[in-house]
Design a protein around this nucleic acid. Structure first.
Length: 111
DNA sequence: CTTGTGACCCTAA
DNA sequence: ATTAGGGCCACAA
């Protein structure tokens, strides 16, 4: 007889929405990016911030640098580490003095 | 159940 | 360029 989730499921730990976010991130091709809002919209949500929370909590094992802000800047507090990835995977960048942005016109992954 | 919290987004000043 | 304010909403406590 079928039953719903019981105690001691080996799965979970990661909530459903968070799991879906990670799936989308895994689908972003090398050298491409999506904004937090893009990821949310793809999942039928308007919660760009929630995507950020998910990345902060569960994103360490995926290509987190491919999810960026709407203006093309890297995740807050991770600009340096993100840049090494952009360079190594040849993500199109726009330089502005000591700052940089990902060139969304070139690198945005659309669905 | 209620509340506080953001790796955010947008507009206005 | 910067700041302020409102909106967003899944998640953790």
């Amino acid at each position: 007889m079928p039953e719903g989730p019981h105690r001691n499921d080996a799965v979970a730990t990661i909530p459903e929405f968070a799991h879906n976010v990670l799936d989308v991130v895994d689908s972003i091709p090398l050298g491409k990016v999506m904004t937090y809002g893009d990821v949310a919209a793809h999942l039928g949500s308007r919660g760009a911030r929630v995507v950020g929370q998910v990345m902060a909590r569960y994103g360490s094992d995926v290509a987190w640098w491919r999810v960026i802000r709407a203006d093309g800047s890297a995740p807050r507090g991770h600009e340096q580490r993100a840049l090494t990835h952009y360079v190594s995977e040849a993500t199109p960048l726009v330089l502005a003095g000591d700052e940089y942005r990902v060139d969304l016109n070139e690198a945005r992954h659309r669905l």
